[in-house]
């Protein structure tokens, strides 16, 4: 196994593209190292991206923020600007692991690990976040929603790495929220999760909504039909009930040791409903 600390994104992409064997990018390593220790993967090449200048930075850009791929989630959680603009994204990222894990783990790593239960992903998808990707053929931008391809899989091509994730600007009276269900209160893996991002009209009614559900399908689910139910409402009881039903309708989970199909589906609806209420309150809605 070779370990290389890359100096530039280009170098990292070149090394990864040239390696015929198994490769892994090392961001925080909180997935990679666990997988190495347990013998799940035996990579031939590990490329550390924390040594690439700029990847550890958060920069303001066009009213939004660009989050470097090596920014630890603990650092993200201490960034007042990001927390104010996208509290739901940050709360998802900050739910990962423990204090120790927070000091290392990244949103890009969470996304690229490809777990359907990744806690940072639904928030990013609901936020319409965009990943900047460096590869052997240069740089491209891609919506985060299009990166997951199934458990452990992404749409990134060989040699491609994410260098940053862009969280867009948003109007006044807008906010988001993320909730996950775990059997414990900490140190667990989402059995179902929901992120809701809302923009409100001056009267508190929903102007626009975007909803993403986690752990209820092979990849994060964008629940557009459900989100449309919220538009024009103030999230009254009936609206929320049909919203929850519509969320359940787009779930396609597995039955496993962590939860049954019925449980995951129902819980996704419940969480979406609760997250919508939180986002609404944060955005300055009446409730």
């Amino acid at each position: 196994m070779r370990y290389v600390a890359a100096k530039t994104a280009k170098e990292a992409a070149g090394l990864l593209a040239a390696e015929p064997g198994v490769t892994r990018v090392l961001a925080g390593g909180t997935d990679v190292l666990v997988q190495l220790k347990s013998g799940m993967v035996e990579p031939d090449l590990i490329v550390d991206i924390k040594t690439i200048p700029g990847l550890g930075e958060i920069t303001a850009e066009d009213g939004g923020f660009r989050i470097g791929a090596a920014v630890a989630n603990a650092v993200l959680g201490e960034h007042a600007g990001v927390v104010a603009l996208w509290p739901g994204v940050v709360e998802g990222a900050n739910l990962i692991g423990s204090t120790q894990v927070q000091g290392r783990c990244t949103m890009a790593g969470n996304l690229c690990n490809g777990s359907p239960a990744g806690d940072a992903v639904p928030g990013l998808v609901a936020a319409n976040a965009v990943a900047r990707i460096a590869g052997p053929e240069g740089t491209r931008d891609c919506p985060v929603a299009e990166i997951p391809a199934g458990p452990g899989k992404t749409t990134l091509k060989k040699g491609e790495i994410i260098t940053s994730i862009y969280l867009p600007a948003r109007p006044e009276r807008a906010s988001d929220a993320y909730l996950r269900f775990i059997p414990r209160t900490e140190m667990d893996i989402a059995v179902a999760s929901a992120a809701v991002s809302l923009e409100l009209n001056a009267d508190g009614t929903v102007k626009a909504a975007r909803v993403a559900l986690g752990a209820v399908a092979p990849t994060v689910v964008v629940a557009d039909a459900a989100a449309r139910i919220l538009v024009g409402t103030t999230l009254d009881g009936d609206t929320l009930a049909s919203f929850a039903k519509a969320c359940e309708a787009v779930c396609n989970p597995i039955d496993d040791k962590r939860g049954t199909i019925a449980f995951r589906t129902r819980t996704a609806g419940t969480l979406a409903k609760r997250a919508a209420l939180i986002a609404h309150a944060r955005a300055g809605g009446s409730k």
């Binding site: 269900f181 049954t260 449980f263 129902r266 819980t267």
Partner: peptide, 12 residues
């Protein structure tokens, strides 16, 4: 939780 919810709702 799945077992309790199933008992509560009959779904499961």
């Amino acid at each position: 939780p799945p077992r309790v919810l199933k008992a509560l709702t009959g779904a499961g």
